[in-house]
Nucleic acid binder design. Structure first.
Lengths: 254, 254
DNA sequence: CGTGCTGCCTCACGTGGCGTGAGGGTCAAG
DNA sequence: CTTGACCCTCACGCCACGTGAGGCAGCACG
């Protein structure tokens, strides 16, 4: 029987000598022979087994699992099919990784996190430092505030543009509903209210229907909000507040 | 200034507390404040930095390199491109591995016709009896269907393995073309489309370019096909469809 | 027969990116 | 004033080896 020493095996299968020692240590692949002077001697059978190990290893399967599947007494074809499946899923993961990198690259190229000036340009008078400070004083120690700060901090200019667009869209829905003469308790107004809530929930902080009521009340009570709304359409602030309450009632009733 | 404790940060960014401790230890991300009692307090600046770290980590970049990127010049884009290449290389390796496994499988295969169970094992969810039946209802009275049935009945397991491998190879070509940024009307994409057609033609039923268009359209229209393709790469279904049409156009023009 | 040179052996510690306690302080709620 | 959920700092464990150190084995050359 022709046998091979560690070095030869290492060259043949593209692994290091240390790796073979390691596999021997943990009992994953013990050479079936030893020379008189203690040299490891690998037979053909050892080689085929090692071949399997190498394939599994390239799939980043942990060694104990490899030992398990090789010990399971399956035929070679079963191993190969299993290996194939593992490779394919790994391929999928790597594909996702590539697209993730691509997205990161894209963002790196065009849109670094938005600066304060860019925000002002976007939101105009609606975005004021002093207002920010006041808000922090009022809400600063709440979870919602922290969550909001954490998220918005990472938003890029593009993100903000999209958020702004969504806000405008929802506001347009409110205006349309109001203009059409539908009451604030109507289906369209409630749908808009729900979308408004969802949007805050998605982009800023967890917001349930109960807390949304308080926000709605504030839109009326706080002149700066009321003014912003009423500039879009007279009476809109109150209308939005009522729609929010109606929507919250509906979800509470269910 | 709003600050966050380890637990909050961990929840927000989906890492463990120990990881934050580790990043602090190695100096990759040290919280810029500490409470009187020694609690780590992370500021928003820390959060944005950590977010960068998390992103890079998802790309399997070692921590010291991440430190280099975040600490050194602003050349994050270059690093991302390098990472992309690394991942692409691994993708290539895995593709080679797949074909190697497929060749090994082919050798292992016996000559007996494949059973239904074996087919399922091979094609996974892509092969469903109900889908087979639906296909028969839709196409059962066409020549193509009969031809396909006649041929595939005689195929051995080894045959199926090879067909699957060929399919995967063609799909890989499409993915590569898509990734490279080449349009679906490009040479590589059209070549892949032609190979796809040729393959169906060889293994299943006579398929000319005109009918191939309809198949392509179905890849987009039928969610089951679209999903299978888009799992390989987002937008692949549409890309394949367009490549098929472009290829058909070319052959019609000649 | 000695002298190198290469290859093999066995310890045994190092590495990266954390996981997993141990032992003990801190903080808000009840 | 307790209780339970957090937080702290060590410090060792894990995997799959890498990387020597110190010492035989085997073969060619002088």
């Amino acid at each position: 029987m022709t046998t091979f020493t560690v070095g030869q095996v290492a060259d043949l299968l593209g692994v290091t000598v240390r790796t073979l020692h390691h596999y021997d240590e943990i009992g994953l692949l013990c050479p079936s022979e030893r020379s008189a002077s203690g040299y490891r001697l690998y037979t053909q059978t050892d080689l085929t087994r090692l071949q399997q190990v190498v394939v599994y290893r390239r799939l980043e399967m942990p060694l104990d699992e490899i030992a398990a599947v090789l010990g399971g007494g399956e035929d070679a074809a079963a191993h190969l099919r299993r290996q194939r499946e593992v490779v394919m899923t790994r391929l999928g993961e790597l594909n996702e990784l590539v697209t993730a990198i691509d997205r990161a690259l894209e963002r790196e190229m065009s849109e670094k996190p938005a600066t304060r000036d860019e925000m002002k340009e976007l939101f105009g008078d609606g975005f004021k430092d002093e207002y920010q400070q006041e808000a922090e004083q009022r809400w600063g120690d709440t979870d919602a505030w922290k969550q909001s700060q954490a998220r918005t901090n990472a938003y890029t200019k593009a993100d903000w543009e999209q958020i702004k667009a969504e806000q405008d869209a929802v506001n347009a829905e409110f205006v349309a509903a109001l203009r059409s003469g539908e009451p604030a308790t109507g289906e369209a107004a409630m749908a808009a209210a729900e979308r408004a809530r969802q949007q805050i929930h998605d982009h800023f902080y967890d917001l349930d229907h109960d807390f949304h009521r308080k926000l709605g009340d504030m839109y009326v009570a706080d002149l700066r909000f009321a003014q912003t709304y009423d500039e879009l359409a007279p009476g809109l602030a109150q209308y939005v507040r009522d729609a929010i309450h109606a929507n919250a009632d509906r979800h509470a009733g269910q």
